[in-house]
Amino acid sequence: MLAKRNESWGLFNPWRTVNDLHKEFLGLFDDLSEGLNRFRANYPKVNLTEGKKEFVIQMALPGYCHENVDIEVVSNFLRVSAERCQPELAEGERFLHLERSFGKIEEAIKLSTKIKSSQVKAKFTDGILTITMPKQETEKAKTIRITKSK
């Protein structure tokens, strides 16, 4: 009777190690590794669209602070660098699984035309950085007449 009770009250069985308990509790994540083989955990990183007058780029930067995001525009180049640090674990916490990446990322993109760097706008919502870059007007072709030489 007592043994039975111990079995159903797993926690009170003195012969079980904490590790066993962890394993049982984390039946939760047994399937994770199997799941990982099925798909690569990810999300789209960059979307770039070109309109008639502007380029719009969307970058996924979840958990990044806008203070740690740098945007540079030169001629027809765009460079975005951002950094997010791995949050420190509180006392008693430990990682069981780690898929998210941390550290510095840099994205450099060459655009097909020059952009008006002074009018570039950026906003950051829900972990998506959206940069709108108006194009510089391209010079129109000039027709040059040849004057007849007398």
Partner: peptide, 25 residues
């Protein structure tokens, strides 16, 4: 569909799941 990356953190009181789902509200 995308499967977002997840971190799993355990502490004394339970489990914490952290997922990157940019663009979701």
């Amino acid at each position: 569909d995308f499967a977002p990356p997840a971190d799993v953190i355990e502490n004394h009181t339970g489990i914490k799941l952290v997922l990157d789902i940019p663009g979701a509200n």
